[in-house]
Design a protein around this nucleic acid. Structure first.
Lengths: 118, 118
DNA sequence: CGGTTTTATAACCGACTGGTTTTCTATCGC
DNA sequence: GCGATAGAAAACCAGTCGGTTATAAAACCG
């Protein structure tokens, strides 16, 4: 998982307009003007956001006459949650010590846990 | 969940140096110089990254004489995964139709599924 | 006290962001 | 072909970002 992939994914998600666009696309494909409608923003503004999303691999675009319908591509989001999953134990208090122990096991082999306990 | 919280969280995660700092902090507290050591970057550069992480609520800082040890605060990451969870069905192909159906249920009450099937 | 260590702060820089207005291209319907 | 519609592209702007150097502040050590 190249770092710049996560860079682009998280950067794309760091804007509320872009997150709202992704949320809208869960309901299905949409054209640029359909996506622009809910926002107090000009069409080129939306097109810029769409280009950011496209270069992050979060949307793809088809062709329907003049229209360029956008479709959600959620695959990069999996990489994001996979990265975040490494921190789950740190916000779920009760799992913290268990997870730390499992981490030791992964790093140091099957005897690490016993050494830890002794 | 205020939108600017997610803004700050995702923006903070969109930088590989900051993600590496968070990864380091999973192993426990660390001082600024300890955090700076692995990077080809000056100390003020690291301090800037730490300020971004702190304002995003992803780290907190204690006091130990001259040192200001940093501690991981993972709570905002939970909000991030909660947001991303809404998209899980779109990258897990096989769950897509089921999850869409469950979404309908949540929105439209317990009869929506039957109406959908008919 | 004086010097060292640790960290923060300020000023500066080039590059990028998020938005605008304007203009251009492509495709439609007639 | 002609006008309307959908979208992209370019130029511009203020502001933020990621980094630097230089300096200051705070607490330690001897």
């Amino acid at each position: 998982m190249a770092p710049d992939v996560l860079d682009a994914t998280f950067a794309a998600l760091a804007d509320p307009t872009r997150r709202a666009i992704l949320a809208r696309l869960r309901e299905g494909e949409a054209t640029v003007t359909e996506l622009a409608a809910p926002f107090a923003m000009t069409q080129p503004g939306i097109s810029k956001h769409l280009r950011v999303l496209e270069r992050a691999g979060l949307i793809s675009r088809g062709r329907d006459a003049q229209r360029r319908p956008c479709r959600l591509e959620a695959a990069p989001l999996k990489d994001a949650v996979d990265w975040l999953a490494n921190y789950r134990s740190y916000w779920e208090e009760s799992y913290q010590r268990l997870d730390a122990l499992l981490g030791e096991l992964d790093h140091e082999g099957p005897d690490a846990a016993e050494r830890e306990i002794r």
